[in-house]
Design a binder for these strands. Structure first.
Lengths: 192, 192
DNA sequence: TCGTCTGTCTAGCGGTGCTAGGATCGAATC
DNA sequence: GATTCGATCCTAGCACCGCTAGACAGACGA
């Protein structure tokens, strides 16, 4: 019995190693550099081992995305719990969101740009993703304004943040004015 | 002399065929299905012919993106010239933008999601891209509000539209409420 | 009519995600 | 302690990718 438990532990440990290595490699050299061969080499196993843990590369990306969603949710909550007053909270939330996207571009890509085979806005949406949206909703719901559904408002605000994050990182928006854009967004969208 | 002109005409015609075919194939089966082999087969030439027109697949994507940018700029202008009153214009603009993204997903991807090797927000930005932004600026500049730089406001509004477009298409936002999100965005962001 | 030269194709390179099948090693049994 | 057996892992290879070198043919100018 103990033998089997040890094997399961080792297996789980190796799975974490795969996800962590994929993430590391993606942050260092971009997702294009994350090939099954390179990934296998880094974890010092052969390629087929990856397929005993994940159905394919897509699922590995999905695993990184889930990890990222948990971290982002935690970061958003940490940034808003300290702040008092709706305006301070929303600004902190937006700044933290954009900051996360900028500091973890590969993870952000896994979450929203690449196909990780994850369900969204559906019943079988994984918990970390639902929780990420919930973290947004907690701070944004209170500034939705009268007669506006908090969920809908959160969707719009989130979309705006997502647009800023992706367009900035793709070089479509000049970085120096990022802060001004953020403040304009908060001023206009949120009802304070 | 005339012979050379004819050849240039034929060459230009073939180049248009390549771009149109790539676009068609991408809209039908997604960009993943646009391989150089399949593309070559569809235009009834061999693979290397593609490389006598474009440096690589990236440039073909870029060509589709430029075509799309021109069309989008035209669509935005057409939608706003008829409308009178800032509010009507901005709503029409936003609706047209989201509509274009929804109806031409592959082209929209070529413009903003994929790497077409195009420069943005720089001196050597191709004319159609600048013109697309200009089309947004024309209608959005008038609702930026006092003390807010029209360019900055346009960037924020554009980012929000981009976020709505991409998240909706990726299944991150439920389509039925798309219209409500659009109206909320216009109501809040634009100073009318 | 004859070279030349442009234009096109065949064939192939190194890489990708993924998998079939054989080898190996450890655990359980006699 | 020897032996069987099953899980685990690796080697080798599939079809496909973007891209290119070099052979070839056909149209051109002399």
């Amino acid at each position: 019995m103990s033998v089997q438990e040890r094997k399961e532990r080792e297996r789980a440990s190796r799975e974490r190693l795969i996800v962590a290595t994929a993430r590391e490699l993606a942050e260092q050299q971009g997702w294009d550099a994350v090939t099954t061969r390179r990934l296998a080499e880094r974890i010092e196993y052969s390629q087929p081992v990856l397929y005993s843990h994940f159905r394919g590369k897509r699922e590995i990306i999905g695993a990184v995305a889930l990890e990222g969603a948990s971290e982002m949710a935690a970061a958003l909550r940490a940034a808003t719990t300290g702040a008092d007053g709706p305006r301070t909270r929303v600004t902190a939330l937006a700044r933290t969101y954009l900051d996360f996207a900028e500091r973890n571009p590969a993870v952000y890509d896994a979450m929203f740009q690449l196909d990780g085979g994850l369900a969204f806005a559906a019943e079988d949406t994984p918990e970390p993703l639902k929780d990420g949206f919930a973290a947004l909703l907690e701070s944004l719901g209170e500034v939705a304004g009268d007669g506006v559904h908090p969920g809908l408002f959160t969707e719009v605000f989130w979309a705006a943040l997502h647009g800023l994050a992706t367009l900035t990182r793709a070089g479509r928006l000049p970085p120096p004015e990022a802060e001004q854009r953020l403040e304009l967004l908060v001023d206009r969208l949120a009802v304070l």
